[in-house]
Amino acid sequence: MTSVLIVDDQPLQRFGFRMLLEATPDTEVVGEAAHGAEAVRRTAELRPDVVLMDIRMPGMDGIEATRQIVASGGRSRILVLTTFDLDEYAHAALRAGASGFLLKDAHPEELLAGIRAVARGDAVVAPALTRRLLDAYAHHLPAAGDQGRADPRWQALTEREREILVAIGQGRTNGEIAEHLVLSESTVKTHVGRVLAKIGARDRIQAVIVAYDLGLTRPHEPGY
């Protein structure tokens, strides 16, 4: 059973989400919040598996709420809901520690699948869409250069793990990485897990952001 906290400043929106989730056997709504500060407080109290987080709310918005919830070190994971798939706010929420985002007009089955994926520890946004989002807001990213190679996160990786991180940053799937590096997908999956642990990334999306932050890959960089 996946426990969910619904965060949205619109009562009708919260009601709609609650109706959907309560009609689904494997999800349970444990609470609601109407703004970011309440979301932070209720997450600490209820410790839900997933926080369904609206971004644009009065007072503390969903980005700051996400940042505070992630910084608390709890197990709750954040699934952001946004109106536009290239919304700058969604980009900021991912950087704050969200595990992915969906559009508010997503089909019910997409929302449920996203909640389940986040609860499992997976990232909801597909690698290619993650890269498209970051490409759109590349002006927020640091200039490319060798400074990333001096970062402790980079230094902690083996040569193979560095190759894996660069490939993740390029938006490559495990299958594509396996083909390029002539490895099995299970081996790539093992390497990805080690990379995430060493760089302190909660999931693949955060690893993409780290790769961009370190200047390891740039927007519109050629692929394999």
Rank of each mutant, 00 (worst) to 15 (best):
V70Q: 09
R162E: 15
V124R: 00
Q147M: 10
V50L: 05
R132G: 07
I55C: 03
A33M: 03
H180S: 13
T173P: 11
L86D: 15
A144R: 00
D49T: 12
V124I: 12
L5Y: 03
L216A: 10
I168G: 04
E32W: 02
S186E: 15
L129H: 09
P48R: 00
A207F: 09
G97Y: 02
I164T: 14
A178H: 05
D122C: 05
L12I: 15
T190Q: 09
R47V: 15
P108S: 07
E179L: 14
G169I: 03
A150Q: 07
L112E: 12
A144Y: 01
G31R: 00
V188H: 07
A37N: 06
L20F: 09
R116M: 06
F15G: 11
A106L: 03
F84P: 07
G223A: 10
V51C: 08
H91Q: 09
D151V: 10
R132E: 15
F17H: 04
A119K: 00
E179W: 08
D122M: 05
I69G: 02
P25R: 00
A128I: 12
D105R: 00
A37Y: 01
E22I: 13
V166N: 07
R162W: 09
T24C: 06
E221L: 11
L196I: 05
D105A: 06
P58C: 06
A65Q: 06
D122W: 01
A98Q: 01
A126D: 13
G74M: 09
L81Q: 08
R218P: 08
G175N: 08
I209A: 09
I199Q: 06
L52P: 02
V188C: 11
E161V: 13
L181I: 14
G175F: 10
R160W: 13
L52H: 01
